[in-house]
C-alpha cells in the first residue's frame, strides 16, 4: 500500500517537473564558422536598427526572429530598446535616407536557422534551447534571461 503511494507520488512529481516551465534564455547566434566572434550590445542594437555594421569589410546581415510574439516583445525591449512604432519609423527613415537595409525577417526557427546556415555574415537571435537543436550555430552572447 505504502509502496503504491510512493510510486504515485513520484509519478506526480515527475509530471509536475515536465509541466514546470524551464528558465528561458535568449541568445545571439551566428553560423558556427562565421567570422563574427563578438558583438557588444551597442553594435547589436545598431545592427538591428538597420545601420550597416561591417566586420572585416563585410556587412553583417541581421535576421529578425519572428517565430513567436514573446520574442518580438523581448526584441523591442532588450535589443533595440524602442516601441514598435518608433522602431518602424527608424527602419523606414534608414532605408529612405541612407539606403540602409531593414533586417530581414524569419517567421520560424527553422527559417532562421536556414538563413544563418546560408550566410556566414548573418546574425540572429533565438532561444538557447533551439540552438541545441542546431549544432551548426554558435552562440555569441546572452541577450536576455528569464
Amino acid at each position: 500500500m505504502i509502496a503504491r503511494r510512493i510510486i504515485v507520488l513520484l509519478l506526480l512529481l515527475g509530471a509536475l517537473a515536465e509541466a514546470w516551465p524551464a528558465a528561458q534564455t535568449l541568445v545571439l547566434v551566428v553560423r558556427r564558422d562565421s567570422p563574427v566572434t563578438d558583438l557588444d550590445s551597442v553594435t547589436v542594437r545598431k545592427l538591428f536598427l538597420g545601420v550597416p555594421v561591417l566586420i572585416n569589410g563585410t556587412p553583417l546581415r541581421p535576421i529578425r526572429n519572428r517565430s513567436e510574439p514573446h520574442l518580438d516583445e523581448i526584441f523591442l525591449q532588450q535589443i533595440v530598446a524602442m516601441s514598435q512604432p518608433s522602431y518602424d519609423r527608424q527602419i523606414l527613415n534608414g532605408v529612405n535616407r541612407q539606403g540602409w537595409l531593414a533586417p530581414s525577417e524569419a517567421a520560424s526557427v527553422t527559417r532562421v536557422a536556414a538563413e544563418l546556415n546560408a550566410n556566414p555574415n548573418a546574425v540572429s537571435f533565438m532561444w538557447e534551447r533551439d540552438v541545441a537543436h542546431n549544432p551548426n550555430l554558435r552562440v555569441l552572447r546572452v541577450l536576455w534571461s528569464d
Binding site: 557588444d40 550590445s41 525591449q77 552572447r141 546572452v142 541577450l143 536576455w144 534571461s145
Partner: peptide, 12 residues
Amino acid sequence: YISHQVRRPDHA
C-alpha cells in the same frame, strides 16, 4: 520592470 544581460569578461 526591465532586465538586461550585462556581459562581463568572465560571466554575465
